[in-house]
Design a binder for these strands. Structure first.
Lengths: 199, 199
DNA sequence: TTTTTTTTCGATAGCTCTATAGAATGCGCC
DNA sequence: GGCGCATTCTATAGAGCTATCGAAAAAAAA
């Protein structure tokens, strides 16, 4: 699928972001060198600065790339009128497949965001917490609809869902054989029904 | 509480491990400098090498310190004959309070273990997976006892439990006001009963 | 006090890393 | 071909970092 009118710069810029994501994911922000990133995309170290103003700027772009359509996807799910059980399955599927598709970038956001410059950090933090808030609102609606127990702490629940997604996301990055669909089903089942044997 | 016969060396060594844990936790392994670690314990950079052969050796010691009684605690819980619901609550409590007590070291183990030397890495990995296996065995016993649904994938479940614990552990480190007991209860409740409204 | 041992220090070699500057190369277009 | 622009290169300044060495200081032993 050839991009229409994709000037070389755009292509290379994207390649640079991806290379940076990959190297940051493997070595961590501080452990990664600009030389390594450049090599990963087949150019020399100094040429990288044609695309990034600084190493830190590269980190910012990688994180943004990782989060990009992440929140939007959740909002799309959240705005459907499916029963909650179906929604939560969709949430896990989206979360996990985001990890698979942009796995390095999302991992980098989770692991290295502490090293972002203050300014970018708050911007991204806001994006991240928008995600949590959306999830929280979704849970609250499910409570009113009677799909979710009334005594659930929605704030806690939203954090837990994100935590589970991220934990599996990490494992997915390292083990490409994991079946995302199956995993999402198990997560959703766990969350809705618990492990306990119904008396 | 004065340690009986605690020679200066032992004290300082422990201080060094803790300082390293703290600095690694804040800056990451590669982002941390030996100067910073030394300063954190009030000595000069070169003096640190009296206690650590190398920076990497410090990482190893921090990780070991973080995991130390972690597995043992789980085994203690696992060997009781409490009902599973009580056990799982104890597991979460132990997991979360370990994070609070040795928070930096455990966080370092989770975040930075990738940068361990191969040899130490496998040793620690084994410790870590002993934890998961123990949890898995516990779940299997609970299935036989009828406390847990028979159709649960115990391997998945064990990973999920660890993932949830670590996710909250991370948040605990950053927010010291979180109530661990309450959190553990919510986690256990979520796991056993799920969020779904029982028809 | 003097001697011995443990702990800390200052100085520095040797290395790697980021970022910059200016030259070279490719490439479309007249 | 030759001009202008975009892209990549080589070379390097400048800084920080780990680890080592031998001397100093502190503590313990005699």
């Amino acid at each position: 699928m050839p991009q229409t009118a994709a000037p070389r710069y755009e292509q290379q810029k994207l390649a640079a972001v991806r290379a940076a994501a990959s190297v940051f994911a493997e070595h961590g922000y501080h452990g990664a060198s600009t030389t390594l990133i450049a090599e990963a995309m087949g150019i020399k170290q100094a040429s990288l600065y044609y695309y990034f103003k600084s190493k830190q700027a590269a980190l910012v772009e990688v994180c943004l790339y990782g989060l990009e359509d992440y929140v939007e996807r959740l909002q799309a799910i959240s705005s459907t009128s499916q029963p909650f059980a179906a929604q939560i399955l969709a949430v896990f599927s989206a979360h996990l497949s985001a990890y698979r598709e942009r796995n390095e970038a999302l991992k980098v956001y989770n692991d290295e965001r502490l090293y972002l410059p203050e300014e970018a950090r708050t911007e991204l933090k806001e994006l991240g917490s928008r995600y949590r808030q959306e999830l929280e609102a979704m849970l609250e609606r499910a409570v009113t609809a009677g799909d979710v127990r009334a005594d659930i702490d929605c704030h806690f629940a939203a954090q837990a869902i994100i935590g589970i997604g991220n934990a599996w996301g990490d494992l997915i990055v390292r083990d490409p054989d994991l079946d995302i669909i199956l995993l999402a089903q198990k997560c959703a089942d766990m969350l809705m029904n618990g492990f306990g044997n119904r008396a």
